[in-house]
């Protein structure tokens, strides 16, 4: 491994993230913004697995954020705060839903796949809206965060920050290993030439479904964290525009790059904070910005850090 610009920048960003609460000692607001960015980065990394490496344009990924957050919310609604119950259930439900949705949508290709994932996600959004018991469109307030038998106290915002940071590191390093493993190579090769992979005897459908489920589960983790972080869950977290924002984070960071989604998520949220400080109508700038990125900067931020032997060009 050569010490190039990409590695230096990546290491610097990670060090900055690690030291942030120390540097910003008395500014919980900015710690909050960055913690939120890191949670969305976990979701974006999971989306990147299917979007960037697997060529599966899922437009419904925010559903799994909602499932994770709703798990925390619904358990808390029944006064069950034990994270050792909440979290495994949240991950299992995310995986199951991803298995079901993946099995349906992977029967289709191209634009049908985009629309199906979008429609299935929208179905969950409407399901959330119709659940009067769990607050319908108002959602649920999560008064007590997940409890881990006194081992970790998530109510402390610096602790929560480091828990999020830990999961982010775990996710990104895990993803780096995964995409270079045999499984990852099959997924990436499928993106190039699915027919050839099939001819070589790989059960391509099963590999894609596995990637889809894995991505959904990791995104469910982001949802568990987000529910705890915001103390709140509502159907809007699953709205298709949220999924669109996740896709934009991946593209902004650089599709099919390991650390790209982290850069993308952080840039997205900082830009949002910065622009909404300037004007309440920040989206009138943000929309065209998105279009310009799509038209002229497809490499994303990762592309600015120099060429690499990209797997997808």
């Amino acid at each position: 491994m050569v010490l190039n610009r990409r590695i230096i920048v990546t290491v610097l960003v990670l060090i900055a993230l690690a030291l942030l609460p120390v540097l910003l000692g008395g500014a919980p607001f900015y710690i909050g913004v960055v913690a939120r960015a890191m949670i969305l980065a976990i979701a974006a990394i999971s989306l990147n697995l299917i979007l960037g490496y697997g060529n599966m344009f899922s437009f419904g990924h925010a559903v799994y954020i909602g499932i994770g957050a709703y798990t925390v919310g619904i358990f808390a609604h029944y006064d069950i705060f034990n994270g050792f119950i909440q979290w495994p259930v949240g991950l299992a439900v995310s995986a199951l839903i991803a298995l079901l949705f993946g099995a349906i949508s992977l029967r289709t290709k191209g634009v049908y796949f985009i629309m199906i994932t979008m429609a299935l996600a929208q179905m969950m959004y409407f399901l959330g809206l119709s659940l009067d018991k769990y607050g319908a469109d108002d959602g649920l307030v999560i008064y007590t965060r997940s409890e881990f038998a006194g081992l970790i106290d998530l109510e402390d915002h610096v602790t929560l920050y480091y828990v999020v940071f830990g999961f982010l590191l775990l996710t990104v390093l895990g993803m780096a290993r995964l995409i270079n493993s045999r499984f990852g190579l099959v997924i990436r090769a499928t993106k190039f030439n699915e027919a050839r992979m099939r001819a070589l005897g790989f059960p391509v459908g099963r590999y894609k479904l596995t990637a889809f489920v894995l991505a959904g589960t990791i995104c469910g983790l982001a949802g568990l964290l987000l529910g705890n972080f915001t103390n709140f869950v509502n159907p809007d977290m699953m709205h298709w525009t949220r999924s669109g924002e996740l896709i934009f984070m991946v593209v902004l960071g650089g599709m099919g790059s390991v650390f790209g989604p982290i850069f993308g998520a952080i840039t997205f949220l900082l830009l949002e904070e910065f622009l909404s400080d300037l004007t309440e109508h920040w989206q009138i700038v943000f929309g065209p910005f998105l279009i310009l990125v799509v038209l002229f900067a497809r490499g994303g931020i990762d592309g600015l850090l120099g060429r690499k032997d990209r797997s997808d060009d």
Binding site: L51, F57, F59, G110, V111, I114, T241, G244, I247, F248, V251, H281, W282, Q283, I284, F286, G287, P288, F289, L290, I291, V294, L295, R298
Partner: peptide, 24 residues
């Protein structure tokens, strides 16, 4: 000539733009 993902994203940008324009 772009792939569907680009079209989806760019038109998503248009939605943000039009919604905000309408709000103004």
């Amino acid at each position: 000539k772009r792939d569907h993902l680009d079209q989806v994203l760019a038109s998503f940008g248009l939605i943000l733009f039009f919604n905000e324009l309408a709000r103004i």
